[in-house]
């Protein structure tokens, strides 16, 4: 079985009127099925309110599906007895860097997860060191989290999850509150986890430039999966992405517009280099 598998998952929020009575339901996730292979880098894209974060919270058993099933490493997340096992195997990093750091010193925060799991003291220290090195924050181990930049705080959060030795890490819009430098740092750390540590990474985001290196991309809209494919396949459908309220990177957009104007370019150009090469080819053939 795949590392994460969702089968027809439905999740509804209750809507309340002013007296607190249930008025109706909002369907946040609507019959979503997906399969994630171990060791891959997956991206889930979508605008705010598309249901992507609600879906993400199912993988860590913070939410349980109202219908359908989610399995993590073969464990049904809705089963009470699997709860802690699921949370250890699927770690989660959240959006707000300030609201997920518990420790007053970086290293103590990274040790929090292993402490909860009952890992022996000596091993906690080993795990903390190795995790902080993996995200490049080892020199900051004695610092107070309050003095770090947003990107550094998110890397500490990633290390905190990594120290639990999970098989999957879900990053729920980890860059939404960061500046461009912070965003780069975090995405680099996430790719490192995947390539060096071999952890399966599921990145939730609305920034398209962050998913260029993903193995597979899911685009969500209205709680449903609207598109699925490799980044190139996704990027080649510029019109559809615009409809889904997503911004295509300028290079892809430029290539698309040129193509519309009659320049013979292939679909789904992702990088500057590709565009320049393709345009040179066009030039030579004339």
């Amino acid at each position: 079985m795949n590392i994460v598998k969702a089968d027809n998952v439905v999740y509804k929020y209750e809507r309340h009127d002013e007296e607190g009575n249930v008025e109706g339901y909002t369907t946040a996730v609507d019959h979503v099925s997906l399969d994630v292979k171990e060791g891959t880098f997956i991206a889930i894209l979508g605008h705010n309110g598309s249901g992507k974060s609600t879906l993400a919270k199912h993988i860590n058993a913070i939410l349980s599906p109202k219908e359908g099933t989610v399995w993590v490493d073969g464990l049904d997340t809705a089963q009470e007895e699997n709860l802690w096992e699921v949370r250890q195997r699927a770690g989660m990093v959240f959006q707000n860097p300030d609201n997920q750091i518990i420790g007053q010193v970086v290293e103590e925060d990274v040790g929090f997860g292993p402490e909860n799991m009952g890992v022996p003291t000596k091993e906690i220290w080993e795990r903390v060191e190795e995790s902080l090195r993996a995200v490049g924050m080892y020199e900051y181990r004695k610092h107070s989290p309050n003095r770090l930049s947003g990107g550094q705080k998110q890397r500490v959060s990633i290390a905190g999850v990594l120290a639990m030795h999970p098989k999957v890490i879900v990053l729920d819009e980890p860059t939404a509150m960061l500046d461009p430098n912070g965003r780069r740092e975090v995405i680099r750390a996430a790719r490192g986890l995947n390539q060096v540590e071999g952890v399966t990474v599921i990145l939730i985001t609305h920034y398209m430039e962050e998913i260029v290196h993903a193995d597979q991309v899911f685009v969500m809209d209205h709680g449903k999966i609207a598109m699925e494919g490799t980044p190139r396949e996704i990027f080649s459908q510029v019109e559809k992405l615009k409809e889904l309220r997503l911004a295509v990177p300028q290079v892809t957009l430029l290539a698309h517009e040129l193509k519309q104007s009659g320049v013979p370019l292939p679909d789904g150009i992702l990088t500057r280099k590709e565009l320049v090469e393709e345009l040179s080819k066009v030039c030579r053939s004339r």
């Binding site: 605008h47 705010n48 939404a176 509150m177 609305h206 309220r245 997503l246 911004a247």
Partner: peptide
């Protein structure tokens, strides 16, 4: 525009 999605930003 911090924290808004692309369309919200625009």
């Amino acid at each position: 525009t911090a924290g808004l999605d692309p369309q919200g930003r625009e």
